[in-house]
């Protein structure tokens, strides 16, 4: 029974919403909005449960005098300050976000800078993550590395000119690497690596002589990479994703998959 009822409810509502997509007639057009309103109401009540869980979790930590209990204390104090300040702002100004409300000051001068700080850390993390990830381990990762460098430089003024020395050094190093590694192989594997070595070395040397041309070429190449290979790849993932989500939804609607319920 405990699993039967949710599966039946899911089935009926799933089929209904699917059918609604095709029926342009009143009152069916309203049902989708109605259900999303129900969802908002239910999640409103659930928010109370969430707050209950948050406060209890940290209250327990304080009571146990955990080593990090001081953070929990800060959290609880800030929580109640924000809560009561907000309630007071309703009373005093008619709403916390009215233009002269003091709660708005709290929001603008404490919350917003904190929010912006968290996001700006991302820039540092991107640097350390790309330093680690962009390694010329094999042909594919070398291609990824080169296209990443082109896109990065295509996105800034002077990018083309800055890019040239990097490209030159990388091509010479990578070319010598393949030249060296090719001696350890025989047959096709060796020929393939010799080919790569010559390709990389000649690209490097070519850049040295035609740097002017390439530096003008980089921004448009960067745009081309973004618009075509990148968009094509994204579209392919999105297509697979959509098919996957239809199949997944059908599995849920027809009760084939019950991993999310008891």
């Amino acid at each position: 029974m405990q699993t039967q009822i949710p599966v039946i409810v899911t089935f009926i509502s799933g089929i209904l919403i699917m059918a609604l997509f095709f029926i342009p007639r009143e009152p069916f057009t309203q049902i989708e909005q109605l259900t999303s309103r129900w969802y908002i109401i239910i999640s409103g009540f659930a928010l109370l449960l969430g707050i209950d869980s948050l406060i209890l979790y940290h209250w327990r930590k304080i009571k146990r005098r955990d080593k990090d209990a001081v953070y929990s204390l800060i959290l609880i104090i800030s929580f109640f300050i924000a809560l009561f300040w907000g309630i007071w702002a309703w009373y005093a100004y008619g709403g916390p976000f009215i233009s002269n409300s003091s709660y708005l000051w709290l929001f603008q001068n404490i919350y917003l800078p904190l929010d912006a700080t968290m996001f700006s850390i991302l820039g540092f993390f991107i640097a350390s993550a790309s330093y680690r990830a962009f390694r010329a381990r094999n042909l594919e990762s070398s291609l990824l590395l080169i296209s990443a460098a082109i896109v990065m430089m295509g996105r800034v003024p002077f990018g083309g000119s800055i890019f040239i020395p990097f490209f030159f050094v990388f091509m010479i190093v990578a070319g010598s690497y393949f030249l060296y590694i090719a001696t350890k192989y025989t047959g096709f594997n060796a020929i393939f690596r010799y080919f790569l070595a010559i390709l990389f070395l000649s690209l490097g040397i070519g850049v040295f002589f035609y740097s002017e041309l390439l530096s003008q070429f980089i921004p448009s190449l960067s745009n081309w990479i973004m618009q075509y290979p990148n968009t094509a790849g994204q579209r392919a993932i999105i297509l697979g994703l959509t098919l996957g989500s239809i199949a997944f939804s059908l599995r849920i609607i027809f009760g084939i998959e019950r991993g999310y319920i008891r």
Binding site: A127, Y131, R132, F134, R135, A149, M152
Partner: peptide, 9 residues
């Protein structure tokens, strides 16, 4: 960042 990537490589 490109310098770091290059040095790493």
């Amino acid at each position: 960042i490109l310098v770091f990537i290059l040095l790493g490589n």
